[in-house]
């Protein structure tokens, strides 16, 4: 066997864990081909796998992130212009804090310091949508080509979405208080390696505390889809031959508030059931990029027309990506 394939199977897909859980369940006398046994195996294996990946990935990302506090990001972006600035904003968005509650102060800080709307929005779109964690998790659950395609298309959506919003010239649609205040520039703190590691460990603890319920819920729904809901029902609703499957999956995903860790098990189960890859990825993007809570937050700093423009551009973009993936799915699976 190829070395990288082995690495992929054992480190990311954690075949050893799957085998281990299987052995334990079988020792307890459960038949894994039965519905109950199968769901139990999926649930236990997925929960452990996701928590291991979650902790390791958040630790690494937070460590990288400690080099890019928002003040530094803003300085970097302030020195760039045009397309390059959008691209840099989208890329920096991939290493930002996970909490959506931090995105509004960021928005105010960016806009207040005079960054153009197009750059701020490139950053805002990319921030929840793509990060290092999604790349590695997608590779672990599907494969590397899907993971890379997802991240690239997510970045394209962030760059083009931001540029489009910029082209609409809606600067008047920002709430007045956002631009009224100067931005504070405290001298950057000098962090030692120990501070960074402590920060990373705190982030892991905090994020695990925040998302564990969503992960259990996501895996539970995944296990349900996996073993209890007949394939025919799922295919009748969002089967790959149904043209409406992509918009439907997107619209179901939008109001949901979860992050990539909770949605992946659902995505995994749906793909196993024969749902189109594009449909599943559109669902995941919709869940992570847009949610009711984040739209309500954003409404506090932008007026309805700009919020509507943001919402429509992202929604249409996600649907387009979904259709693209469905059309070219044979290249990936």
């Amino acid at each position: 066997m190829d070395f990288f394939e082995w690495l992929n199977d054992q480190l990311l897909r954690m075949e050893w864990l799957s085998q281990g859980v299987k052995a334990v369940l079988e020792a307890l006398g459960l038949d894994l081909s039965s519905r109950l046994g199968g769901s139990l195996h999926f649930f236990i294996y997925d929960v452990i796998k996701i928590f291991i990946l979650l902790s390791v990935l958040i630790f690494i990302i937070s460590w990288i992130q400690s080099y890019f506090p928002p003040e530094r990001t803003r300085r970097i972006l302030g020195g760039l212009q045009g397309f390059r600035a959008n691209l840099a904003a989208a890329l920096l968005g991939t290493i930002t804090p996970f909490c959506s509650c931090s995105s509004i102060p960021l928005f105010i800080g960016f806009t207040g310091s005079g960054l153009p709307l197009s750059i701020t929005f490139s950053f805002l779109i990319s921030s929840p949508l793509v990060d290092l964690a999604s790349l590695i998790l997608l590779a672990g659950i599907f494969n590397w080509s899907i993971a890379i395609a997802y991240v690239l298309l997510g970045l394209v959506l962030a760059v083009l979405g931001g540029a489009l919003i910029g082209a609409l010239r809606m600067e008047q649609q920002i709430e007045a208080f956002v631009t009224r205040h100067p931005v504070l520039d405290l001298p950057p703190e000098q962090l030692q390696l120990r501070d960074r590691l402590r920060y990373a460990a705190e982030q892991v603890q905090e994020i695990v505390q925040r998302v564990w319920m969503y992960v259990l819920l996501g895996v539970g729904i995944g296990a349900l889809i996996h073993n209890w809901i007949p394939e025919s029902v799922i295919n009748a609703l969002i089967g790959s031959d149904k043209l409406w499957s992509v918009p439907l999956a997107t619209l179901i995903g939008i109001p949901m508030y979860a992050d990539i860790f909770g949605t992946l098990p659902i995505a995994e189960a749906l793909v196993h059931k024969g749902v189109g890859l594009g449909t599943v990825l559109a669902f995941m993007m919709a869940v992570t990029a847009l949610s009711l809570p984040s739209l309500i937050m954003l409404r506090k700093v932008v007026k309805p027309p700009l919020l509507a423009a943001f919402f429509s551009i992202i929604t249409l973009g996600i649907m387009l990506i979904g259709y693209l993936f469905n059309a070219f799915a044979y290249l990936f699976l």
Binding site: P70, C101, S102, P105, G112, F177, V178, H181, L184
Partner: peptide, 9 residues
């Protein structure tokens, strides 16, 4: 919050 110029909470 914005009045204080704070970007990260």
């Amino acid at each position: 919050i914005a009045a204080y110029g704070v970007m990260s909470t």
